[in-house]
């Protein structure tokens, strides 16, 4: 059960949130100038790391705001929470995350 610190509401249980998957995706366009390959890359290909993952969440049963989270996909530790427009944080890899 994750505890997520919504930047607008404070710490809440994960059941109030919805995970929207990998963040920082760049949508290619306009449609007429995008190759099938580029589009497929954007639409389907994901980092899917075993480690720190930058992902976006919505506080769906709360303020309904989207924000970014840096979460470890093995330990589920949350190391950073930042706005949708924020820069991707640099997370140091440490040995405790095996």
């Amino acid at each position: 059960m994750l505890k997520i610190d919504c930047p607008f509401c404070g710490v809440r249980d994960e059941s109030e949130f919805r995970c929207g998957g990998q963040s920082h995706l760049i949508r290619p366009g306009p449609h007429g100038q995008v190759s099938d390959e580029t589009w497929a890359e954007y639409l389907f290909i994901r980092d899917n790391p075993k480690g720190w993952h930058m992902e976006r969440w919505q506080h769906i049963y709360g303020c309904r705001q989207w924000f970014n989270i840096a979460r470890h996909t093995v330990t589920h530790e949350i190391r950073a929470i930042y706005f949708m427009t924020g820069q991707k944080p640099v997370i140091e890899n440490d040995s405790s995350n095996a």
């Binding site: 919505q58 705001q65 989207w66 949708m84």
Partner: peptide, 8 residues
């Protein structure tokens, strides 16, 4: 609608 508005 919210997702596109807030994220894109």
């Amino acid at each position: 609608l919210e997702e596109w508005l807030q994220c894109e």
